[in-house]
Design a protein around this nucleic acid. Structure first.
Lengths: 154, 154
DNA sequence: GCTTGACCTCAAGCGGGCTTGAAGTTGCAC
DNA sequence: GTGCAACTTCAAGCCCGCTTGAGGTCAAGC
């Protein structure tokens, strides 16, 4: 039941297999995203399950989660066993929703751009393009008022 | 032909109308994205056309361009007149393409996620989820090889 | 002409996600 | 038992897109 040495990977090995830099792995450990056994001499030895966690982390980042959010998501995953269908399903569903939201955002942006080309204003103003408003999901700043070349003086 | 003072905006005014912070405007000037006249005393006075540039900048950022890229895009726009249909059209088309690419990326990720739920592997590996590969457009790192719990030893 | 708020410059800081470097230790192969 | 790559920690640095602060000047209204 104990973990045999054949199952423990040194950091370089894990880095190579996961595609993360060793420095990133140490950083993740510092953040509590992953953990490791230690040899008598103090070197890290990773359980194979860590590869799963790293794959999860990479996927989560791809859909735009911060490491903080990844940390929360990981808290829902078992540390030592392969997640059950139910466990994984719950998370995957949330992620799909998130992706769908992102796609919807982009589509809205695209249609604003199309309008802008069609509307003839050409000033990249007055037509909402410069006022995405709910861009928040991607970049933060949030609501800005609509621009005009001279809204006040018109 | 010279610009009358009524057409020149102090930075606070431009900030209020464009929705950018004064500090951001100064920063953009430093990067060469916008420029300004100066009063005898050294204060900035912006031409109205600058509002257009700022709207453009905001829109470009929303699409996900870095300020470096915005700079290149701006180089294609006239400094002092409203862009012609052709000028704007060329840029808008490129942006739409970019958005389409982003959407395609997300769809790929979504389908990988769906497969992952369906395929029963549940290990968040072996099924491509953790290997977006061409994530580059969004996050940089670029190609990683496919993960498996133990690709070498299989 | 004075007050006051808006402006100026320059340097430093921040947040996120790491990377880099220095200085030293471990562990596997021969 | 030794050589050398791979590892260790800790502190600092980097990139991006700004913001903040200090210390000082300008300009517009009374």
């Amino acid at each position: 039941m104990t973990i045999t040495s054949r199952d423990l990977l040194p950091i370089g090995e894990l880095a190579a297999r996961s595609g993360h830099a060793p420095s990133a792995l140490r950083y993740y450990e510092e953040l509590g995203l992953i953990d490791a056994e230690r040899t008598a001499g103090g070197q890290r030895r990773y359980r194979r399950a860590t590869l799963r966690r790293l794959a999860f982390i990479r996927a989560a980042q791809t859909i735009g989660l911060s490491l903080d959010e990844v940390s929360e998501a990981l808290a829902q995953l078992p540390h030592d066993h392969v997640p059950t269908t139910a466990e994984w399903n719950r998370i995957a569903t949330a992620w799909q929703q998130r992706i769908d939201d992102q796609i919807a955002e982009l589509r809205k942006l695209r249609s604003r751009l199309t309008e802008c080309v069609g509307c003839g204003c050409l000033s990249v103003s007055r037509c909402g393009l410069s006022n995405p408003g709910d861009t928040a999901a991607r970049r933060g700043p949030g609501a800005r008022f609509l621009l005009g070349d001279d809204p006040a003086a018109r």
